[in-house]
């Protein structure tokens, strides 16, 4: 495993820690899109089916279980925890996320490497992950007040995929790997969706101002 990959995974993990910190200690999920969180549960459930069919490493298995467990836990808190669920910005979380699922299903059925259940679901999970942040970004645009933890959470989530791109470049050059268009293009699209957010996040950080996205 190269450094970019490890940093990417750690950034992803850290984003979840930051979100759990907000939910468990501040007891708030204000500004967090439940729709995006539900999409992540679907992404992990469909991607990690190979937990049952293939073993890679203790690290790999442990991380998959952590991502599955925490994503389900976060959705549970936002839907059912009696204090946390009252802080949910329901009226602003309006993105039609079913549309993203449908789009990813159609795309996975049309473009995949092999037509079998696990491969198509794996491909579906990549397409869905690429766009899963959209409801969250739309919610942020509508939020008048983006708190630090929410801003940091989204930034770390975007940084994770950007680091994965460097990891793919490294593996292509150093480990002599072949082209893998589906994950690469999905990953590029996913990272590109954050471009606008990155710009305003870094700007607010440099000017020591509160993060605010233009509507």
């Amino acid at each position: 495993m190269n450094l970019f990959r490890l940093l990417g995974d750690m950034t992803h993990l850290l984003s979840i820690v930051v979100l759990l910190l907000k939910i468990r200690t501040v007891k708030s999920c204000a500004g967090i899109s439940l729709k995006t969180q539900e999409l992540y549960v679907i992404v992990f459930l469909t991607r990690y089916l190979d937990l049952f069919t293939k073993y890679y490493s203790v690290y790999n298995t442990a991380m998959k279980l952590v991502f599955l467990g925490t994503s389900i836990g976060i959705v549970w808190y936002m839907r059912y925890h009696k204090v946390v669920k009252q802080t949910y910005s329901k009226d602003e979380d309006t993105f039609k996320h079913y549309f993203l699922i449908l789009l990813s299903i159609i795309l996975a059925l049309l473009i995949h490497r092999a037509f079998d259940v696990i491969e198509v679901l794996w491909t579906f999970s990549l397409y869905l992950e690429a766009v899963a942040i959209l409801p969250q970004l739309v919610l942020l645009q509508k939020s008048r007040n983006i708190d630090t933890l929410t801003g940091d959470y989204v930034f770390l989530l975007g940084a994770y995929r950007a680091l994965y791109i460097l990891n793919w470049v490294y593996r292509f050059l150093m480990e002599n790997h072949k082209f893998r268009w589906i994950p690469w293009i999905s990953g590029l699209v996913q990272t590109a969706l954050y471009a606008d957010f990155f710009y305003y996040y870094i700007k607010s950080w440099k000017n020591r101002e509160k993060l605010k996205l233009p509507a």
Binding site: R5, D9, H12, D50, K54, Y56, S57, N60, M63, K64, F67, W122, Y164, N167, R171, E175, N176, H177, K178, R180, P183
Partner: peptide
Amino acid sequence: PPSSYVKDEL
């Protein structure tokens, strides 16, 4: 390299 290499990622 193994053909499934991308799948060793998360």
